Simulated scan of single mutants.
Amino acid sequence: MSADEIPDELWRKILEIGVKSSTFSYKDLCCISISSRRLCRLSCDDSLWLLLLFHDFPSHIDSSSSSSQSPTKFIYRTRFEREKERKVAAHRRALLRKESVVSELGRRIRELETRLSEEAERFQGASMEFSNLQRIRQASVALNVWQPEVVRGRQKQMVEQNAVPVAGRLRALEMEMKLCKQQIMGVNRSLREVKKRFDIAGKEVESMTYHPLRDYKLIRSGDQVSNAKRKKLKTSINFPAKNPARPSKKIKLLHSESE
Rank of each mutant, 00 (worst) to 15 (best):
V101N: 06
G106M: 02
Q157I: 02
E121M: 07
S68Q: 03
L112K: 02
R97Q: 03
S103H: 08
E104F: 03
R79M: 08
R86L: 11
E85W: 09
R110K: 14
Q155A: 06
V88G: 06
R82D: 06
R115T: 10
K156T: 11
T78Q: 10
L170I: 04
E176M: 07
L133P: 03
F74Q: 13
E81P: 01
V102M: 03
Q69C: 03
G153M: 13
A94P: 00
G106F: 02
A126S: 13
A139I: 04
F80V: 02
M158W: 05
G106W: 06
S140G: 06
R79A: 10
E111I: 03
V101S: 05
N162C: 15
E111A: 14
S117P: 01
Y76A: 02
I75N: 00
E111G: 12
L112S: 05
S68C: 06
K98Y: 00
Q134P: 00
R92C: 02
A172T: 09
A167H: 11
F74R: 12
S70Y: 09
R171M: 06
R110Y: 11
T72L: 15
H91M: 04
I109K: 07
S127H: 13
V145W: 07
V151I: 15
E85Y: 08
R171Q: 08
V159F: 02
M158Y: 01
N144R: 11
E113V: 07
E83Y: 01
V166K: 01
E99C: 04
P71R: 12
V88Y: 10
A163M: 14
R154P: 02
E99Y: 01
V151E: 15
L170Q: 07
E176I: 05
R137Y: 09
R82M: 08
A94C: 08
Q124C: 09
A120P: 00
L143V: 00
L112E: 01
E99A: 07
L170N: 02
V141L: 11
S67M: 10
S140I: 04
A163V: 14
V151F: 09
S100M: 09
